[in-house]
Amino acid sequence: MRFVLASQSPSRRMILESGGVTPIQHPAHIDEDALLETLSDESPATTVCALARAKATVVAEQFPDDVVVGCDSMLLLDGKLQGKPLTVDSTIERWKTQRGKTAELLTGHAVCFQGKWVEETISTTIHFGDVSDKDIVAYAQSGEPLQCAGAFTLEALGGWFIDRIEGDQTSVIGLSLPLLRRALYSFGLSASDFWR
């Protein structure tokens, strides 16, 4: 029995490895934009969880006897879900909008084991610092935040610009270890079953 991560995220892999687990990384390729269009009337929490479930479903079909986890994170800022900024200019614009504000980072999780599912969205409150224009440009140009929900990482350069969080730190990085522990227990498994 193995732990399969339906993601190519180095941050999610790092969380698992720091927790003693060496996952198989098997990214799921889904049309996120098309799925988001079908979810336009859903709540933000339901939306991110549906994205996580879609990713886990694709991978679970290939690993039916293993624990598979799919995740998706988005920032809820001023009532609107924000995905990855993808470009330096978009990152700069995003940071100029979010600096000094409070937002919710939503991470949807879908965990599957032998046809049983645990699905949940973890919400963590992020208090963004009042960051200078110079630091915003330098951070965007570093490339680090371009592929990150909320245009920041908590565990690297972005940590300079987050005043505080309220909630699950591992969920902000991309994968909630407490949620995974509860999911494994519900399947009759233990976290230590996967420690190397």
Score class of each variant (00 low, 15 high):
residue 139 Y to F: 11
residue 73 S to Y: 06
residue 84 K to Y: 12
residue 65 D to K: 08
residue 162 I to K: 03
residue 4 V to N: 00
residue 119 E to V: 06
residue 168 D to A: 02
residue 172 V to M: 05
residue 87 T to L: 13
residue 180 L to Y: 04
residue 101 K to F: 04
residue 180 L to M: 05
residue 57 T to I: 02
residue 72 D to E: 07
residue 79 G to A: 05
residue 136 I to C: 00
residue 75 L to V: 04
residue 124 T to A: 02
residue 17 E to N: 01
residue 117 W to F: 15
residue 190 S to W: 13
residue 61 E to V: 11
residue 20 G to Y: 11
residue 35 L to N: 02
residue 156 A to V: 03
residue 43 S to I: 02
residue 119 E to T: 10
residue 10 P to W: 10
residue 74 M to R: 14
residue 178 P to E: 02
residue 4 V to L: 01
residue 2 R to T: 10
residue 74 M to E: 04
residue 23 P to C: 01
residue 29 H to Q: 14
residue 133 D to Y: 06
residue 131 V to K: 11
residue 52 A to H: 05
residue 166 E to T: 01
residue 39 L to D: 07
residue 115 G to M: 13
residue 147 Q to A: 13
residue 138 A to P: 12
residue 74 M to N: 11
residue 76 L to I: 10
residue 113 F to A: 08
residue 15 I to L: 14
residue 131 V to H: 10
residue 49 C to F: 02
residue 15 I to H: 13
residue 95 W to E: 08
residue 8 Q to H: 14
residue 121 T to G: 05
residue 63 F to H: 12
residue 101 K to R: 15
residue 59 V to A: 09
residue 36 L to H: 07
residue 134 K to S: 08
residue 160 W to T: 00
residue 44 P to R: 05
residue 185 Y to C: 08
residue 76 L to E: 08
residue 151 A to F: 03
residue 176 S to R: 10
residue 9 S to R: 09
residue 49 C to A: 04
residue 100 G to A: 11
residue 123 S to V: 09
residue 135 D to W: 08
residue 141 Q to K: 15
residue 99 R to F: 11
residue 159 G to V: 10
residue 144 E to G: 06
residue 9 S to K: 12
residue 24 I to W: 10
residue 26 H to Y: 14
residue 148 C to Y: 10
residue 54 A to N: 04
residue 104 E to K: 13
residue 126 I to R: 00
residue 113 F to R: 14
residue 98 Q to M: 14
residue 129 G to K: 15
residue 77 L to F: 15
residue 171 S to H: 09
residue 126 I to M: 03
residue 167 G to D: 05
residue 51 L to Y: 02
residue 63 F to I: 05
residue 140 A to V: 13
residue 60 A to H: 06
